[in-house]
Design a protein around this nucleic acid. Structure first.
Lengths: 205, 205, 205, 205
DNA sequence: GATGAATGAGGGTTCATTCAT
DNA sequence: GATGAATGAACCCTCATTCAT
């Protein structure tokens, strides 16, 4: 790729990258990272094998590109800060809804990315630093301020935040493993989860 | 494999299978399913490559064998039914502890197995039918009986059970992705989670 | 390339060719012919990959161009005829010095060119006809006239000339293979070789 | 390859290696190292591509194997020490004859090996340490003892020995580049060279 | 003429699987 | 049944060359 800052060039380059990432999304989701061949991606993108290497250093870089795009997409979504404007419960529902929607809308993408991430340390590092850690940090920060405002109980911010985030991730994986209930009732999840998280399952005394 | 029902034969066959699965456990945990070669497994088991094919149809079948064994191991562990003997809260703590221990003790195994499962439909089916569905069914059943006994609130058994199971799975994956908090504080998790699940995070009125 | 005989055109074309050959010299010397890519040459020349194909039919043609230029450069150097002006011994020293300097100054170039020449018949033919044969013929001619003048013994002109030329080439290759003595003592070589060639190693009777 | 010391195994392994090296000799000589494909070698050897990798780590290792075999073959040939038994001149003739025969008999092999050696540092190192340096050291040793015995003049052992060895190598390369005289008159070379080396070309006073 | 993105054949290498011993 | 050498399909990647702009 040229070093040129030519905006038209940049546009073309981005278009091609997008084209390749779109194809990769499809192919990885269908076959998984390992079983998908570079040729598969190229064919799906309607280009030659070699062309991919003009835009990505290697097959793994394509996956990283996918990860980054996932990340960027997510960045554009709602932030915790907005939570201050609503009551805590409504915010939790809205947050979980947004979160679940994002993660389930990209479920097949996650199916492609997760396996490689579990196995590939470099990829894992990227995901951990760029996505997980900021998200958890933001969550802890928000959680902490809610505690200070007396809106929620002070249980154990790090573990609670991780548990809630983990629940969302775990539900996705259940779904990816073939559980149908979860995705079928995706819309109900935010409220059920919020009830669970806020009130728990103990019976009213 | 012969059709003979000779019990000595069967014993020998089982011994070899165990030997191979032990090796596979180690190798898959170290390298992941894809990076592990049949030769790796054979060497670790102290046998020849070809011998593996006497006991397993192919490399994937070895993973299936591992999954089945994981399943059996798990079956031998504490059951929900035992829950009836304790108060609900203590049971939940005990159950989560056992569950988390099992899953975190086999974390590296899960790292090897999960990716393949997410990508391989056949494997997924096995896991879904043999492990997830029975577990969830058992959970729902127990949950239901607890509701009937007035021990817990009737929120939405299918979703709540899946959420709790999902939380455990999600925490494992967080951990596998590099989060250190979770495994470092593994011992505290059962109680924190139980508090969350039973009481929620809402402040005392 | 156009068929035009326009002298300005020709000048421009030559300038470009020179630019490319200069770049190729550098790149081939650094990486060798095979490892050097057309892109390497283009970047070093500050032009685009494709432009090279306007001036050279293919990568090998660039090497041929290099060879021709090497040849021309060499032609401009001292000639055997000049030898007539000096005494034979001094001329031999001067000739070997010039020869060794030329060949060792272009050692890395030779490292790049020789391998391809050994393997590529077309290239070999060019080198043989354009460089080796004229040089040997010139050498034989000079040698013959020295014999006639009684300056040297009549041993076997064709073989002796080839042996002397071969010695220079052989020393270069020794050096290219990693022998350090030769290039370290390059300056002493002309005299040592001349002594060897003229007087031999037999002890004085 | 097994670690077993089983002599039958070892025999089979050696047979296969020989089979592969023979094929490689042929293919490399015909096409050169780079243009020769592993598939070419395999086909010529009558085996599958992959089989080569049971016996050699990679394509370069095959070349190294060739080099080693060349080396071993050479070891079996006449040694300098034997020179003591003859007069110096006869020994030089015999030595050069043996040397030239060896190098010209394996000319096509050299054509395959040399180019890669010039370009591949690892290979070069092997050749330098295993073949060139011992040969030169032996030569210098012999030359020194001849000086001490007053059989030859003391000119500059390191450079003279290298020059003589270089001449042989240089003549080979001339020949490989297409000069026909040298190989056609191979038989005459030892004597001509010996005359040159011992007596030089200066006219009798 | 210059560009450089696109091409796609081709290469080295890996490894699951087979099968003669 | 056990062995492990042999197989060969398949993969990722490189790079000389082309050609639309």
């Amino acid at each position: 790729m040229s070093e040129t800052q030519d905006p038209i060039q940049a546009l073309l380059i981005n278009a091609r990258k997008t084209q390749i990432l779109d194809a990769a999304t499809k192919v990885f989701a269908e076959k998984g990272f390992h079983r998908a061949t570079v040729k598969d991606i190229a064919r799906t993108a309607g280009i030659a094998d070699g062309t991919i290497y003009t835009y990505f250093a290697n097959k793994t870089a394509v996956l990283v590109g996918l990860l980054n795009r996932l990340n960027e997409t997510e960045q554009r979504a709602m932030h915790f800060e907005q939570g201050a404007l609503q009551d805590t419960r409504s915010f939790m529902i809205a947050y979980l809804r947004q979160r679940l929607n994002f993660i389930f809308d990209n479920a097949e993408m996650m199916r492609a990315v997760l396996p490689e991430m579990l196995v590939n340390a470099e990829l894992r590092e990227i995901y951990l630093q760029q996505i997980i850690e900021p998200t958890v940090a933001l969550g802890e920060h928000y959680y902490q301020s809610m505690i200070e405002q007396g809106q929620i109980r002070n249980i154990d911010p790090p573990l609670i935040v991780r548990s809630i985030a983990g629940t969302v991730l775990g539900l996705l994986i259940f779904s990816l493993l073939g559980d149908t209930q979860i995705s079928e009732r995706r819309d109900e999840l935010p409220e059920v989860l919020t009830t669970l998280i806020f009130d728990g399952i103990h019976p009213p005394e």
